[in-house]
């Protein structure tokens, strides 16, 4: 069965015509302009191996992320990097997009949790990189290179991810605070041994999530003060943020994502801002000038992405230094010599 599906994928790839890889279609909006015929991966689904005491889960690309997460939840484990579902996300799509949710700054990104990848290249060959063990430095770390490559290097067939226990203690707090004070406080708290796992500033309100040992969470709540948020409301808040389902993210206006060093003082950018990751991820809405947004982010030490909507003709990701673009091109050429996978989705050049 599984072999038949791989043969079917291979047959499509060997036609050497541009393909648009698609899992649940939840992130069709994301990335550069791209054409190609759709190759659906949803049929190649299922959890292959889950060993709670080994802290690892392996699933096929088409497995719904929700299915994987409910298997983990049944054993009180989770994917702490909280990749968004945006609807019907699959495991393969989540890894290809490489997006992480509200806890990213504290616990690491999706890439950090990847242990292994099984990949079909542009000539239909199947490769295995990494594996199901925590530490593995044999060969170049190709499995983590695949995270965030937007399907341009190959068809992800299977992924092994590190999982962690659900923290026993969990509480959320709210503070009224202007942006500059919030950034200052977030960076100060992140330098202290506090169990702060997520935070969000918007419209003069800073919301914090604390999680870890019950005793650590309780003592941090006392130390930090603020207004305690009842659990159902708090869970809905963090869920809404992870899925970009809150009012800030609604509507058609273009959504920009600025990834900058956390301690950068308030950025002079048009439109309302929503700040996450202790200051390292800043969102804004509106028809901003792409060149200017990239300049602001680059000057601050980071980069800017046209995340959703807007005019993609100038590319959605910040252009690369020429030497790095050359390395990208050569990598692309090695993994996908006929330019089959998602051409233009990452950069217009390939």
């Amino acid at each position: 069965m599984s072999e038949d599906r791989l043969d079917a994928f291979r047959a499509r790839i060997l036609e050497r015509k541009p393909l648009r890889l698609r899992g649940g279609g939840s992130k069709d909006f994301y990335g550069g302009m791209h054409g190609g015929e759709v190759l659906e991966t949803a049929g190649h689904a299922g959890i292959v191996n889950y060993e709670p005491t080994e802290l690892v889960i392996t699933a096929r690309c088409g497995t719904p992320l929700a299915e994987l997460e409910s298997a983990l939840a049944a054993r009180r484990q989770c994917l702490p990097c909280e990749p968004p579902h945006f609807g019907a996300a699959t495991v393969g799509g989540a890894v290809a997009a490489g997006l992480s949710g509200p806890r990213r700054a504290a616990v690491g990104s999706l890439r950090d949790f990847i242990l292994g990848v099984k990949l079909m290249d542009g000539e239909g060959r199947v490769h295995r990189f990494g594996g199901e063990v925590m530490k593995n430095v044999a060969g170049f770390d190709v499995s983590r290179l695949i995270a965030g490559s937007l399907g341009t290097l190959g068809l992800i067939l299977e992924v092994s991810l590190k999982v962690l226990p659900v923290p026993p203690g969990d509480a959320s707090l709210r503070f009224e605070m202007p942006q500059d004070k919030a950034l200052e406080a977030l960076n100060r708290w992140a330098g202290q041994p506090l169990p702060m796992v997520a935070n969000c500033w918007q419209d003069g309100v800073l919301t914090l999530r604390l999680a870890g040992a019950q005793a650590a969470v309780s003592s941090a709540c006392v130390k930090l003060g603020g207004e305690s948020i009842p659990e159902p409301e708090a869970l809905a808040f963090w869920q809404g943020l992870r899925e970009q389902a809150t009012e800030f993210f609604s509507g058609e206006a273009p959504l920009w994502r600025l990834s900058v060093p956390s301690a950068v003082t308030p950025l002079d950018i048009p439109g309302d801002q929503l700040i996450e990751w202790g200051g390292a991820q800043r969102w804004t809405r509106g028809d901003a000038d792409a060149v200017r947004m990239r300049e602001i982010a680059t000057r601050a030490g980071g980069h800017a992405t046209l995340f959703r909507g807007g005019d993609k003709s100038a590319g959605v990701f910040t252009p690369l230094q020429p030497a790095l673009m050359e390395i990208h091109r050569r990598l692309k050429q090695s993994f996908d010599p006929y330019g089959v996978f998602n051409p233009g989705r990452l950069y217009p050049e390939f």
């Binding site: 890439r111 983590r144 965030g148 990834s259 790095l324």
Partner: peptide, 12 residues
């Protein structure tokens, strides 16, 4: 920052 544009060459 916490991530960079393009492929994750840091992982390599």
């Amino acid at each position: 920052a916490l991530d960079a544009p393009g492929y994750d060459l840091l992982a390599l």
